[in-house]
């Protein structure tokens, strides 16, 4: 199928981009890598008046060291993020989750920022951003603001960004040494969305868990931070028992959807099993 007609702009800078977005009105969409948007356009499930293509703004592709944090440009592709030495050193959970996104060709085009701004609760990266306390850097003609991950994902496919705002980057705090990470993705075929995913980072102190960060993919209209699990596992010995009992808290605060691939009840069960496994894998 063929997308409905739209106007197209290709600003050369962030300043240009936010001006274009401000003028374009509510029915304009930002085109990043287009890997989520293009199928929706082709199926005419999205019919924007205009696309603002930010693909030529080189600055948005940068991944830089910002002292106690990394700043990942919104237009850094999954392919780039997975291989970036800074990401691998300071945010390996992002690399691990990005490797599970779709397939290589999609990862060449699809972007870190685009996946987050799309705010699909079945997407792999939102839960990771939440687990890592990422901060979203957003620009508009009205200026720049920062949105913490806890506030960024509002509802199903809805972020806290206004229509005239552009995600320019994501600041990810460096967690410091001693963390193990794991992204546990459960899906029926290699290409399919996660039925449930668990993003997990664990810091050990000898034989005990000092701290854990856990967030869930596709367990509600937005990614869910599993505070209950984090609290329950803190200070516990590294053991399967600890992980299993902590994982019992995984469903707290979730509103799992029901769809072709899993009922809410099954998703709740999976969240528990997979959380336990993710903790164990991260704690190795």
């Amino acid at each position: 199928m063929i997308p409905a007609a739209f106007d197209y702009a290709r600003p050369a800078s962030v300043d240009d981009a936010v001006r274009v977005l401000a003028d374009a009105g509510e029915d304009a969409k930002v085109l990043a890598g287009g890997q989520s948007l293009m199928p929706l356009l082709r199926l005419r499930l999205a019919i924007p008046d205009a696309l603002v293509d930010v693909g030529r703004i080189g600055a948005l592709r940068e991944i830089r060291d910002d002292g106690d944090a990394l700043v990942i440009g919104a237009m850094a592709t999954h392919h780039q993020v997975i291989r970036d030495p800074l990401v691998r050193e300071h945010a390996p959970l992002i690399a691990a989750a990005a490797e599970t996104v779709a397939d290589p060709a999609v990862r060449h085009r699809g972007t870190f920022g685009g996946s987050l701004a799309h705010a699909d609760p079945a997407g792999d990266l939102p839960a990771v951003a939440l687990a890592l306390d990422a901060v979203f850097l957003v620009r508009s003609v009205r200026g720049e603001r920062e949105i913490p991950a806890t506030e960024f994902f509002v509802d199903w496919m809805t972020s806290a960004m206004e229509p005239d705002e552009l995600l320019v980057g994501v600041r990810v705090p460096k967690p410091g040494p001693g963390w193990g990470v794991h992204y546990e993705k459960f899906h029926r075929t290699a290409q399919a969305w996660a039925i449930v995913g668990v993003a997990c980072a664990v810091r050990r102190n000898g034989g005990a868990i000092e701290e854990a960060r856990v967030a869930l993919t596709n367990m509600g209209p937005a990614p869910v931070r599993a505070d209950g699990v984090e609290n329950a596992v803190r200070g516990r010995p590294v053991s399967e028992d600890s992980f299993r009992s902590a994982a019992e808290h995984a469903t707290e605060g979730t509103e799992p959807p029901g769809d072709l691939h899993g009922s809410p009840e099954y998703r709740s069960h999976l969240a528990t099993v997979l959380t336990s496994r993710a903790l164990a894998a991260a704690a190795v």
């Binding site: 290709r10 085109l31 287009g34 890997q35 293009m38 082709r42 293509d53 999609v106 060449h108 085009r109």
Partner: peptide, 11 residues
């Protein structure tokens, strides 16, 4: 590699 059905010609 890209999927040419998911790239606009302008891109």
């Amino acid at each position: 590699s890209v999927k040419s059905c998911s790239v606009l010609a302008v891109q």
